[in-house]
Amino acid sequence: PGATGFAICLEEIPMAAPGSATTMTTTRFRRPTLDCAVVNAKAGCLYPNNARMLAEARAKGFGNALVADALGNVAETATANVFIVKDGEFFTPIANGTFLAGLTRKRHISNLTAAGYKVHEAVLSFEDVRQADEVFLSGNMMKVTPVKAFDDVQYPAGPLTAKVREIYWDWAHSAA
């Protein structure tokens, strides 16, 4: 009595319709490092920084913010992990202790590898994202969210992003 050991907040948010996409821009805010924040967990203390990132992106007319780590490399977005597709191969930022490498991200890596695709965890620059053939976000809430634009770079509704979604939902509906 007199102390809270656990608290939970629930919010009803519908799944995005297949084919819906988002846009991204850069943000002046960066992901913190493990020595100064709990970046390796879904920690409430991180959400205010994420909210600043989203507010800045939305004020610029975009749906999400592509966020840098402390060294200026791509980490994730304000709300999800990020993947790019280049020349038929998948790339996602290497887990470097500045962001939560999510379970859905890990599931996509596993599913894609099992399906015979090459998946690279690598240091990615903002220029790598600009030069990508396709970009999508990966998160527990929406599973796969295609990105149709990053600043002034436009991306098509890509076939490999659609394949990721298909593979994921086949796995989710399987007995595995």
Rank of each mutant, 00 (worst) to 15 (best):
residue 17 A to I: 01
residue 102 G to M: 14
residue 82 V to D: 10
residue 122 A to E: 05
residue 1 P to K: 14
residue 23 T to D: 02
residue 9 C to P: 04
residue 97 G to S: 10
residue 8 I to P: 07
residue 115 A to N: 06
residue 79 T to P: 01
residue 7 A to L: 03
residue 89 E to I: 00
residue 138 S to G: 09
residue 74 V to P: 00
residue 103 L to I: 15
residue 156 P to F: 05
residue 54 L to S: 14
residue 43 A to G: 08
residue 169 W to R: 01
residue 172 A to K: 09
residue 101 A to G: 09
residue 124 L to N: 07
residue 152 D to F: 06
residue 19 G to K: 01
residue 61 G to M: 13
residue 21 A to E: 13
residue 47 Y to C: 01
residue 22 T to N: 10
residue 134 E to A: 07
residue 144 V to N: 14
residue 75 A to Y: 02
residue 17 A to F: 02
residue 71 L to K: 15
residue 133 D to W: 00
residue 169 W to I: 06
residue 97 G to A: 11
residue 22 T to S: 13
residue 86 K to C: 07
residue 48 P to Q: 02
residue 93 P to M: 15
residue 15 M to Q: 07
residue 82 V to Y: 08
residue 5 G to L: 06
residue 124 L to H: 05
residue 20 S to M: 05
residue 103 L to V: 15
residue 113 T to R: 02
residue 23 T to L: 02
residue 102 G to T: 10
residue 89 E to C: 02
residue 101 A to D: 14
residue 30 R to A: 03
residue 87 D to R: 12
residue 76 E to N: 09
residue 174 S to T: 08
residue 16 A to F: 13
residue 132 A to S: 10
residue 5 G to M: 07
residue 97 G to N: 13
residue 88 G to I: 01
residue 51 A to N: 08
residue 16 A to Y: 11
residue 44 G to V: 05
residue 52 R to N: 03
residue 131 Q to V: 03
residue 123 V to D: 08
residue 78 A to V: 03
residue 27 T to W: 04
residue 144 V to C: 14
residue 119 V to F: 06
residue 153 V to I: 07
residue 170 D to M: 13
residue 48 P to L: 00
residue 100 L to S: 11
residue 9 C to V: 15
residue 60 K to Q: 15
